[in-house]
Each structure stands twice: as C-alpha cells, then as structure tokens.
C-alpha cells in the first residue's frame, strides 16, 4: 500500500454539538483560508477519511457535496475531490473581513452596555434562528 500523506487531517469533536459534516466543512474552509490547502489540492478519499476518524462515510460524502456547493471543492469523476482553482469564490473572504470588523464594533458596544458573553451569544442565536426554514 502506498503511504501518501493526506492533504488534510480531520478531527472530530463529539462534544462540540456541531454536526460532524459541518465540522469537516469548517476545517476545509479554515485550511483554505490559512493556505494549508490550495487550488488543485486533492482532499482525502472518503475511505481515507473513514480511516483517519471514526465517521460515517455518508457524512463525508455530504461534507464534500457541501464544499462543492460552496464552490470550494470540485468532484472529478473517478479521480476524487479537489480544491477549486477558482479563487473568485474564495474572495468572499474579503467580505468576511468587513463582517468581522463590524462584529468587533458590535461586541465593543455590547460590552459597554453591560452585556456579558452569554447574553451576546443568546442574542446572536436568537436572531440567527428567526426566519429559519424547516425542511418540508
């Protein structure tokens, strides 16, 4: 068996309460942002991920599909899943910076008006979950 080092080593935190597929998606996004994964890099095969961490292969498929949907990765028939060369989809990161900056401002404001961390999180969650759709 050839021993190739995986382009990314996934971790699963079963206590985080974050769905496992979401954890994989986030880890790839993070690695792309940090430059650990670059355009053209191959993601480990589903089988390899199942060997890295104890996870349902369906979950890995689902995470990879989500990455494709986000334009971060692309499936190539019979070859595997690769990080896209298309940097455009990732330039959304610049929008991220704007969002992060305004969030920092908001946190400052919230602190000044006496909200603690939990209260801020509660507020944020509350607004996130409005207008939410349920799968029919």
């Amino acid at each position: 068996m050839e021993d190739k080092r995986p382009s990314i080593y996934f971790r699963l935190d079963s206590r985080s309460g974050v769905a496992p597929y979401r954890q994989l998606v986030d880890q790839v996004r993070h690695a792309v942002k940090l430059g650990q994964l670059r355009g053209g890099d191959q993601l480990p095969s589903v089988r390899d991920v199942v060997t890295q961490v104890t996870i349902n292969p369906n979950t890995v498929h689902r995470a990879y599909r989500e990455l494709e949907h986000l334009g971060i990765a692309e499936g190539r028939l019979g070859l595997g899943t690769f990080i896209t060369h298309d940097v455009d989809s990732l330039s959304r990161e610049s929008d991220h910076d704007v969002v992060e900056e305004s969030l920092k401002q908001w946190i400052k404001l919230a602190r000044r008006s006496g909200l603690d961390e939990d209260q801020m999180l509660t507020l944020l969650r509350q607004f996130l979950h409005h207008n939410e759709q349920v799968r029919s």
Binding site: V46, V50, T51
Partner: peptide
C-alpha cells in the same frame, strides 16, 4: 467502529 465504517464505505 472504524472497521465497521470502512465496511460501510
């Protein structure tokens, strides 16, 4: 469990 998941895969 990993052995099991590999079988599923």
């Amino acid at each position: 469990l990993r052995l099991l998941m590999r079988q599923v895969s």
